[in-house]
């Protein structure tokens, strides 16, 4: 295997990933996606589209009905402990331990992520990088705003230094300034070579920073476009059209075939 091959291997890959819940609801249907190093893949879709289910499958919180989720080539459901060494996660609403200070939370979660070599100065540098004010470092999380907690969450992900990152609607509920800062940080992480899979409702932010945008509806990836393909395209209109088209076609003929690029 040469260096080129290693570079091109996807760090996050869903292969025919399907999830049907016990009540018969098909949350994800035969999902295929790949995220390579230095790429951001944004999953767009409404509530119940299957975005969070995809992330839950990558994190082994649920078992797939069929198919596989790979992290750095490791089957996340067959060997979750090994797979999760290669991924960091930032949720929609980062809720750390409220009685711990920011520093204590960062220390705990970074160690939990298997990184024991850091000193306080490293934690401080990461927190400064994500834009948290120094006065907040030793304050308890219960006094933090959502934006501040989100910054701590991304600092933990940075310090874990995993090759892949999963972001579950990370900018939801953030004010525009905090959202912009967050977007900049995610862009920086992509530039460092991380493979990032992000679920979001935010069409504009997805178009702004993503290398690939996938539209999920009813558990099906109905469309997937590269950033180059989206140039000059009104993504919002495209999103609405795909959703409507998919719904019409579903009524007539069943689910659309995945439109993989």
């Amino acid at each position: 295997m040469n260096n080129e091959t290693i570079k091109q291997a996807p760090l996050l890959e869903a292969r025919n990933l399907t999830k049907v819940y016990e009540d018969g609801v098909k949350a994800l249907d035969n999902l295929q996606l790949r995220v390579h190093p230095g790429e951001i893949f944004a999953m767009l879709g409404g509530n119940g589209a299957g975005k969070t289910t995809t992330i839950n499958l990558f994190l082994d919180f649920i078992q797939p009905t069929s198919g596989h989720a790979f992290i750095n080539g490791i089957d996340a459901n067959a060997d979750p402990l090994e797979a999760k060494k290669n991924v960091a996660f930032v949720s929609e609403n980062v809720q750390l331990y409220p009685n711990f200070t920011a520093m204590q939370n960062v220390d705990f979660f970074v160690r939990l992520g298997g990184r024991h070599q850091y000193k306080r100065s490293d934690y401080e540098a990461a927190l400064v990088r994500v834009g948290l004010q120094r006065e907040a470092f030793d304050k308890k999380l219960k006094d933090f705003s959502k934006g501040m907690r989100q910054k701590c969450g991304i600092a933990i992900a940075i310090l874990k230094d995993a090759p892949a990152i999963l972001l579950d609607e990370p900018t939801s509920g953030l004010d525009p300034k905090a959202g912009k800062e967050f977007t900049r940080l995610v862009g920086d992480l992509r530039d460092e070579g991380k493979a990032i899979l992000m679920s979001t409702h935010d069409i504009f932010r997805a178009k702004e920073i993503s290398d690939h945008v996938g539209i999920l509806n009813g558990g099906v990836l109905v469309a997937q476009k590269t950033n180059a393909e989206l140039k000059g395209v009104n993504l919002e209109q495209l999103y609405v059209e795909y959703m409507a088209g998919y719904m019409e076609e579903t009524l007539e003929t069943g689910p659309l075939t995945n439109n993989l690029t």
């Binding site: 994190l59 082994d60 919180f61 979750p80 402990l81 090994e82 999760k84 060494k85 991924v87 960091a88 996660f89 949720s91 609403n93 980062v94 809720q95 750390l96 331990y97 979660f109 939990l112 992520g113 298997g114 969450g153 874990k160 999963l166």
Partner: peptide, 10 residues
């Protein structure tokens, strides 16, 4: 949400 964050690790 801390449970999810914990188990996002190994």
């Amino acid at each position: 949400g801390t449970l999810k964050l914990c188990f996002a690790n190994s």
